[in-house]
Amino acid sequence: MQGVVKVNSALNMRSGPGSNYGVIGTLRNNDKVEIIKEVDGAYEIRFNGKVGYASKSYITIVN
């Protein structure tokens, strides 16, 4: 499943599905991501070869 990031500035990509996990990357508006699955209000995603988590509130599914 594919998604597009929709933010005003940037969205943190984290090592786990919550803000208490470390930041492993930054997503920008209109970045395209692969959605692997939904976990606790976040999506597990793949972006630029990395797998991490981002809030589903800022990712629009575009299948």
Rank of each mutant, 00 (worst) to 15 (best):
G18W: 02
K32W: 12
A10F: 15
T26R: 11
R28E: 09
N30Y: 08
G18F: 03
V5Q: 01
N48P: 00
N29F: 08
S55L: 09
M13F: 10
G25K: 04
R28N: 12
N20E: 13
T26F: 10
S15I: 08
S57E: 15
N29C: 11
L11I: 15
D31Y: 04
N63W: 08
Y53M: 02
N63F: 09
V5G: 05
N20V: 06
N29I: 05
S55K: 10
F47S: 04
V33G: 00
G49T: 04
K56Q: 07
S57N: 13
N63L: 12
N8L: 11
D40C: 12
K32A: 09
D40Q: 09
R14N: 07
S15G: 08
T26C: 13
Q2Y: 15
V7S: 14
K32H: 12
G18N: 12
G41P: 02
V23R: 04
V39K: 06
G49E: 07
G25S: 09
G49H: 05
Y53L: 03
A42H: 15
N29D: 09
V39L: 11
E38R: 03
R46D: 05
K32E: 10
V5A: 03
V39G: 03
R28G: 07
L27E: 00
G41N: 11
K6H: 13
T60D: 12
E44L: 15
T60N: 10
N30Q: 08
V62T: 11
G41R: 05
N63Q: 13
I61R: 06
E34V: 11
V5N: 01
N30F: 08
Q2C: 15
K32Q: 12
G52C: 04
I45F: 04
M13C: 07
V39P: 01
V51K: 08
G3I: 02
G18A: 07
M1L: 13
V39D: 04
F47V: 09
Y43F: 09
G3K: 01
Y58C: 14
K50I: 13
S55W: 09
G16I: 04
V23A: 06
I61P: 09
I61T: 06
N8K: 15
S57D: 15
I59K: 00
V33Y: 01
E38Q: 07
I36L: 14
R46A: 09
S55A: 11
S15Q: 07
A54N: 01
N29Q: 07
I61F: 05
G18Q: 05
M13K: 01
S19H: 13
I59G: 00
N20C: 13
N30T: 04
E44S: 02
M13L: 13
K56N: 05
A10G: 11
V4G: 01
D31R: 02
K32P: 08
N30A: 07
V23T: 09
R46V: 12
N12I: 14
E34S: 08
L27G: 01
M13Q: 02
I24D: 02
N8Q: 12
K50E: 10
V4D: 02
Y53V: 03
T26I: 15
K37H: 08
I61C: 08
A10H: 15
E34R: 06
R46N: 10
L11A: 11
T26Q: 12
L11D: 02
I36C: 07
V7Q: 03
Y21A: 15
K37E: 05
M1S: 09
V51M: 09
S19Y: 13
